[in-house]
Nucleic acid binder design. Structure first.
Lengths: 154, 154
DNA sequence: TCGAATTCGTTGGTGTACTGACGATAGCCG
DNA sequence: CGGCTATCGTCAGTACACCAACGAATTCGA
């Protein structure tokens, strides 16, 4: 009766999109390294020695979640974690050789997977796809962190 | 060096989109009922007495996950679960009065939230947004369930 | 009709993902 | 220098989300 059409609900679509991606990742990229784990590796390739919290910020994970992801990657020997001698609160992260190799290997596979994933869209549509999602996600994130970036208004 | 730009990775974007939605849902819709739980309620409003597995299929959740969601909704008294007398394997689901009331209340709030969430996009862009995501998700799901729907080819 | 295959729900294991609280450390200020 | 505050990482709790394996019930086939 009063039921709603979920296919017009962005949250529902976002969940389904992520699930679809998860499945494809599992079959085409890796069954051991997950997409968030790859994001962490990738961040540390770009910026070695980064602080744990900052890595979380880069990939979009809160402190609790990033701690678990880091812990798993450390257990597999893909990264090293050292206490910052300058600031005892921080943990500094750095990929091991194995971590670098793994990142390189997965980068290739990830690119292939992205092609398959986006194959139903034309080139222009793909650009649009990125643009629209990014705008919605950024705006919603902005609602969470109010004020602050008002440079010269107060 | 060989680091990749994650903003061009659909999986990364999908995750960020869902996180953004999660936060907005929590503040604008409900802190107790989650989006997947609402999807289940909504399905049972449209089709009362549905089988547990079928509900999972409707909302896009596997048997394990739907079992937990159903269990939580049952614990809160929002639905009833009865063994099918015709087929002892099945659990038939039906909303309670409280479940119906909750669904009605959340439907209003969800509509409001969707407006806020999609506000950064124009009307045409919103249509495109739905269309692009749905096409990608559907295609990826199709890769998972091969063959089968070939009606007259064998 | 009786055994084999299928289906449904459950359980156990892993991996995100969030909040809230807590201890340790560091920075600031009186 | 000694307390206030802020920050970082951890831990506990809750909630998806998947796979694999299992028991119970049904259905199908010889």
């Amino acid at each position: 009766m009063a039921a709603v059409d979920l296919t017009t609900h962005p949250g529902h679509l976002a969940r389904r999109l992520q699930q679809a991606h998860y499945l494809l990742w599992n079959t085409m990229v890796s069954e051991e390294i997950t997409s968030p784990q790859f994001a962490v590796l990738n961040t540390l390739v770009a910026e070695p020695g980064l602080d744990q919290r900052t890595v979380g910020e880069r990939v979009g994970l809160d402190r609790s979640t990033i701690a678990e992801v880091i812990s798993r990657l450390g257990r597999r020997g893909l990264l090293d974690k050292v206490r910052d001698p300058q600031d005892g609160r921080r943990s500094l992260l750095r990929l091991t050789d194995d971590g670098l190799r793994t990142h390189k290997k997965l980068t290739v596979r990830t690119a292939r997977m992205n092609q398959v994933f986006l194959a139903p869209l034309s080139a222009e549509e793909q650009t649009l796809f990125f643009d629209l999602i990014r705008r919605v996600a950024d705006a919603a994130e902005g609602l969470r962190n109010p004020a602050e970036p008002l440079v010269a208004q107060g």
